[in-house]
Amino acid sequence: MIDLVHVTKSYARVSHPGQRVLALDDVSLTIEKGELVSLVGPSGAGKSTLVRLLIAEERPDSGKLLVAERDISRLAPRELPYYRRKVGVVFQDFKLLPRKTVAENIAFALEVSDASPADIRERVPRMLTLVGLADKGANYPNELSGGEKQRLAIARAMVHSPRILIADEPTGNLDPGTTTEIVELLERINRSGTTIILATHNKDVVDRLRRRVIAVEHGRVVSDRQIGRYELPSHHAAVGAEGLGS
């Protein structure tokens, strides 16, 4: 499903013109269809860079990034929107439109993708039901709790029925109870066949899932276990650093 082949990515250092900082260093990994993979590592490890590469926000300096056997680093700008409809993404800060209602936030994603009105009428309530917000369609985001906001973000990410859902610190702003809710929702979505990549700092979430865990440090994959726990070989201090931005 997803293949990273010797992917390297660096950024220019703003403070030192001419110098570059390495975010991903020769990373190779494979994620199969239907997997739920936790991507763990301390701040600056390269998790967010990996997420940005997967949603085609960035292009690697070198290496191949294959999604469904297609090298997405070579997509033409006009192909990007169609690719992004196949890859749902949710963030720690939800990224909701505050002046649109819950239902409108989901409908907006369909409207700008040229969906028909009939399609919008059918899909919006289905998505709201999926995430348990069927009775909140007319509310505005500021009337929702943190967990509800994240569920709305997930509903929007799932509206195009993507094959992959990428969650970048989805529980970073949530309390433990709500975190459990969101993780259960992600597991449910994964059971329906969607591949999920969960970039997180949250040890409890990773340990509870008992699924594949890929640990990243200094831009390299330092461990990859099929049934893993939140463990970083060289950076034990990161254990328990929940709540920090990645």
Partner: peptide, 16 residues
């Protein structure tokens, strides 16, 4: 913020 969301949900350049 809105433009970023539009891109993330697969909006075409025309719509943005």
């Amino acid at each position: 913020h809105e433009i970023e969301i539009m891109r993330l949900v697969g909006s075409t350049t025309t719509f943005v």
